[in-house]
Amino acid sequence: MKIQGSYLLAGLMFAASGGSVQAAEVQVAVAANFTAPMQKIAAEFEKDTGHKALLAFGATGKFYAQIKNGAPFQVFLAADDQTPAKLETEGDTVPGSRFTYAIGTLVLWSAKPGYVDEQGAVLKKGQFKHLAIANPKTATYGTAAVAVLTKLGLLETIQPKLVTGENISQTYQFIMTGNAELGFVALSQVMLDDKLTGGSAWIVPTHLHEPIRQDAVILVKGKDQPAAKALIDYLKGKKATTIIQSYGYALP
């Protein structure tokens, strides 16, 4: 209590001293695939604005359930455009705040160098025991992965080899530890500064699945919160978009 009191006092003094912006906190729910870029963006955001973004990472479907049940999130960076749209029609967002912050890229990835070829022919050969995907019921990248396998006519043969991660981070973990030889993850997870961080990958052509439009939105709990508005504006700025692109995302 004492500590909180002194923070409060410091805050009041800061306000009284005529600080132009009141530093505030904003609670953000972030789709798991956007973990790495968002951590970078949040650090820059804090440096530039003084506001602190508290980040929670997870599957979009889970966040939806939590938001519907009173979770304290003020901003939501989803892995799709449907969930934010749904929240909007259900009156859980600040109208007009929704926008596409990134377009995701699906990649077939293996931790082993040279394992995945650049055309993804490894899928057809089928000489693997496990292929990891994110849960297609709740994670956008999982839905996209199933769409790709369906379009290639491989879903039925590969089905018995599928292992499902609860979200895209767990899917990555299955592949990274070698327990699954390969799997579909987000390009952002295996890319840094426009380069593959390791292993081998096939960047899935976008005509094989619906575009992964990732929308952000201010939630009702973030209404009239300057830090929430500031974060959304920051995401549209040059600094953030450069970071976003460096992880292999496209911009709308």
Partner: peptide
């Protein structure tokens, strides 16, 4: 189970 099962 969630961590090593793979939800099969």
């Amino acid at each position: 189970v969630l961590m090593i099962g793979g939800n099969i």
